[in-house]
Amino acid sequence: MTEIIRLDNITYKYDDEDQRPALQDVSFSINKGEWVAIIGPNGSGKSTLAKTINGLIDPDSGEVKVGGLMLNEKNVWSIREMVGMVFQNPDNQFVGSTVQDDVAFGLENLGIPRDEMIDRVRNALDKVNMLEFAEREPARLSGGQKQRVAIAGIVALRPAIMILDEATSMLDPQGREEVLRTVKEVKEEEHLSVLSITHDIDEAAAATRILVMKDGKMIQEGSPETIFSYGEQLVEMGLDLPFPERLKASLKKQGLSVPDDYLTEEGMVDWLWTSISRM
């Protein structure tokens, strides 16, 4: 597998007088086509880390490599072409006055000819199921719809990596599910690598690998199954307990013995019905 993002020993302080750096000696890499989730409590440096990847933040020391290019002043715009970011607040990242203008914004920046732009805008809107809203103004869209437009804006740019910086945290459950589904579909169709920063358990569960951050340091790394089997400790990591874990905890309180390793919802159902039929 080819590496698409590699961070080596990144350290960053927002302010020279800060006692504790926002990022301390962080290293990790993401392979092509992977979906990696970064979790951690508030203030653990997750968002700072995301901004380092496309050069919105210039680290004090360490190296960032994206798609084989070293991040420096010369390469920063080519790297930004490869990395698409969706931010938290759907209102504050909507630049255009209508949906189609917003999707076109990134293409305009790249100087794409108008005819091609029209095709790409329509295609991208079609992919996120927002084509019929093309003429709408942002004030008349729901939060989830605005985030889907933000995703379309990135899909139109055809990047290699999509970063979701708590992109679903301000949405209702329905909007959250909508956006996640869209990201999954787009990822499969366009063979993207996804890096999602999240507190949402479902979003973390969708990942192939989870990285856990705390106090600016990377403290854990593993598959969702490994991370979720930490049980109660997950809350400290800034995540909710997955539903099967919560069920196991309640069953334990009732004096029932439960398996120690993490089970998905289906796994839990299997375990439950086999144990009941054995009784």
Binding site: G84, F87, I112, R114, V121
Partner: peptide
Amino acid sequence: FNRAEELATAMEARGYKGGEGRTKYRQ
């Protein structure tokens, strides 16, 4: 102010670097 900052970050992340070399969607 917060909005402006977030918007500026989002614009920069989408490759906005000023008026030069831009094409226009609306005509």
